[in-house]
Simulated scan of single mutants.
Amino acid sequence: MGILSRTSYVIRSKINALLNRAEDPTETLDYSYEKMRDELQQVKQGIADLTTQKKRLEIQKRRLEENVEKHNDQARQAVQQDREDLARKALEKKQAKMSQIEELDGQIARLQETQDTLVQKKDELQSRIEEFRTKKETMKARYEAAEASSRVSEAMSGVGDEMADVGRALERAEEQTDEMEARSAAMDELMESGALDDVLSDKDSIERELEAGRTNAEVDAELETLKAEMGKSSEPAEETEADTETEVDIDEEVVDEEVEAELEELKNEEESS
């Protein structure tokens, strides 16, 4: 096999493979069905044209037959008038018309035979088309069912192109999520251990702890000051019975005053509403 032959063979095989992948059997069946219907329509049109031609010949024959009767009448009238010459001419025309009628009969008969043959072929072709249509619809239904089943199987098994893409996308998303979770956990661990200083602060961990200690000392000092102002000391003191009674009275007065104030506030709210 020469280079050109091999190249031609390879090209034809490639084209054939492309056509096989691009071909939709249902579209091919529909196209074949439409072509057969076009052929049937052409046969019907041919029968119609043939019938029209036959009708024209039959009309022409009928007119000739009318002329034959006319020439017969002319010949009788000429004989009655003793005009043999006119009678002869009329009969000659009659014979010419009879010859034309005979020729038309032959043409009409041949057209009728052709018409009968075409009608028979048309009926056979129409029957084949109906049979092909039934097979076509059955085949299309089988193909569509097989195609749907194949798509479902590919989707369930994940071997289809689209499902494969979805699977890869899920894998990438899972990997990125795992990486982000690990990064977040690592950052939290570093922040808790103090290994990472606040990027917005120029203080290290020791300075922050010292500052927190100073803040706590200031809070303790302020708390002691408040206790001293309120007459309370952080050191425990012995309470006498009299002091206890005095404190109880004072507490009751304070409670009474708070209750009166709260009642007054409620009355003001009801009046204003």
Results as ranks from 00 to 15, higher is better:
Ile59Trp: 08
Thr28Cys: 02
Glu258Asp: 11
Ser201Tyr: 05
Asp82Ala: 14
Lys122Val: 05
Asp165Cys: 08
Ile108Gly: 01
Glu257Asp: 15
Ala48Met: 11
Asp116Trp: 09
Asn216Pro: 03
Val199Ser: 10
Arg214Asp: 13
Gly213Trp: 06
Thr225Phe: 08
Lys89Thr: 10
Asn20Asp: 12
Glu130Met: 09
Ile3Arg: 14
Ala146His: 05
Lys135Val: 06
Ala221Met: 11
Glu224Phe: 04
Glu27Gln: 03
Arg21Ser: 09
Lys55Trp: 04
Glu245Trp: 10
Lys122Gly: 10
Lys54Ala: 14
Leu226Asn: 08
Ala195Met: 06
Ser184Tyr: 13
Ala261Thr: 13
Glu239Tyr: 00
Ser272Met: 13
Ile47Arg: 00
Glu209Thr: 06
Ser13Ile: 03
Ile11Gly: 05
Glu162His: 08
Asp256Val: 08
Leu104Ser: 08
Ala169Lys: 12
Ala148Gln: 13
Ala228Gln: 15
Lys93Leu: 02
Ile3Gly: 05
Ala237Glu: 13
Glu103Met: 13
Glu137Thr: 03
Glu181Asn: 06
Gln107Thr: 07
Leu57Tyr: 03
Asn268Pro: 02
Arg133Met: 05
Gln126Ala: 15
Glu113Phe: 05
Leu64Lys: 00
Ala237Pro: 01
Arg208Gly: 03
Met230Thr: 13
Arg88Leu: 12
Ala195Gln: 14
Asp38Trp: 07
Arg88Thr: 10
Ser150His: 14
Leu170Glu: 04
Leu19Trp: 03
Ile59Cys: 06
Lys35Phe: 10
Glu179Tyr: 03
Gln53Glu: 12
Lys136Phe: 03
Glu34Lys: 05
Phe132Asp: 07
Asn72Pro: 00
Glu162Met: 01
Ile15Phe: 06
Asn72Ala: 04
Lys121Ser: 05
Val255Cys: 06
Leu50Gln: 00
Lys203Asn: 08
Tyr31His: 09
Val43Gln: 04
Lys227Ser: 09
Gly158Glu: 08
Ala164Glu: 09
Glu103Tyr: 01
Gln176Cys: 05
Ala217Gln: 00
Arg6Lys: 14
Ala164Leu: 14
Gln95Arg: 00
Asp24Tyr: 07
Ser32Trp: 06
Val255Ser: 13
Gln42Lys: 14
Lys135Tyr: 09
